[in-house]
Design a protein around this nucleic acid. Sequence first.
DNA 1: TGACCTTACTTGGTATGCCAACCTTGGCAT
DNA 2: ATGCCAAGGTTGGCATACCAAGTAAGGTCA
Lengths: 252, 252
Amino acid sequence: MPELGSDHMYEKIAGVLRDQILIGDLRPGSRLPTQAQLSDDFHVSRTVARQALDLIEAEGLIDRIQGGGAFVRRYQPLLRRSALHYRSDPGAPFAEETLASERVPRYSHRTYPDRAGADIAKRLNIRVGDDVMRTIYTSYADDQPVMIVDSCEPLAITRGTPIERPEEGPLLGAGIVPRFTSIGLRPTAVVERLRSRMPRPSEIEALELRPGTPITTIVRISYCGDTPVETADLLLAADSYELEYALKVDPE
Amino acid sequence: MPELGSDHMYEKIAGVLRDQILIGDLRPGSRLPTQAQLSDDFHVSRTVARQALDLIEAEGLIDRIQGGGAFVRRYQPLLRRSALHYRSDPGAPFAEETLASERVPRYSHRTYPDRAGADIAKRLNIRVGDDVMRTIYTSYADDQPVMIVDSCEPLAITRGTPIERPEEGPLLGAGIVPRFTSIGLRPTAVVERLRSRMPRPSEIEALELRPGTPITTIVRISYCGDTPVETADLLLAADSYELEYALKVDPE
DNA sequence: TGACCTTACTTGGTATGCCAACCTTGGCAT
DNA sequence: ATGCCAAGGTTGGCATACCAAGTAAGGTCA
């Protein structure tokens, strides 16, 4: 059935290494044979051994260090749960989900007033140029960047309220539900739209992505009834996250 | 600022081509310069031109045809909406979402009784070896495979009912909500857990994936109250799908 | 006009070779 | 013991070269 085991040597070598990695014969962190070793073992040139490593590197299975060797990559994703992020009680979803994986959470942010562009305006159902409060977060787990969030809230709604600046006050690090609830605008729905693809160079740099790592982009809009109260673009390193969506089926 | 523009020629060439593609200078479907052309233009060997193409191919930006050339890849994902799949009315979610993108839906399936393995048993809260009805779907849009679903339902629940075999009877192609509702077990919640990563060879084959295309795996469990009534493993071609989750925030 | 075939073009697989960059380790000196 | 440095090992970037395999286009033949 599966015609695996191509007649091309570089694919054959890659296949052997891939199998050893996936079977667990080669454990995470362990070192692969050197290129010289591989070319010896398989009776091919180093060129071909390198192509084989190129291949499984693009599959996200190994890390390569110039002068150092190739090593089996670890996979330890965080779990991002909708139930955690969009619950009512205050709390720090990101910190909790990071600690749940026994890793150290940290994030930085920058908040500033901005004007809505065409895209944001459409999402928030406001006019282009209208004032919004914009916050950009970078989240780290064990000092490794795992997520970047670019969030916008219409100032027409939040201006003058205690939550005008998201990262000030008692609800620091809390989700949007408790925040807007605190000003009497309890969110009723959140819509997330996601895509996964290979990253652009700027994204590779921002998330310090290694080769063979896809990213997931999420466009989020939070509603209170029919009015959008917040929108955000999330950028996640796909190898750092598993996403869980808990959906309630409405009764008729 | 962004130190884009490496000092390595293959990255430089890849950068130029990538920019032209992303800017839209090179339109989807259009042909890139030949390797010979590139090596001429940039004064490098064909080896380096090939490396540059290898790179943007791994990013999912181009398709290459031996003897034919390299072409800018198209991106036309379907939209998979939770609201569509888990609504109450009967209907054919996959057909609808495919037609919504003006493409031709088609799917094949195979249904057979099976025994639960450790994983399935745990998800369905039954014992290992218990009877389940298993159905494997392969869905196509314009004859291209875009999704594979491996679904299991405990026969302890469905045996003898009209929905024992999912793809028989009047609710053909319908979602799980109307199906289980028809036997008096209206599902109340669905949990989906997703991951994105580069595909294994078997997955590349099954979904006819091109290089640089990640996949998204979804583990789904459908509940009626606290009892799991169905579980499934979904495998999606990431370049064929955009996923939308509409979440209702529960009132305190 | 349509089917077929030849030919030039283009890409893919692989071998060699060379040097730069980087890591690792062991030895030396303080 | 500690720090520094040199040497060897290993990977990365790139040039050349050759042949196989596949495409595309034009010409021939029916």
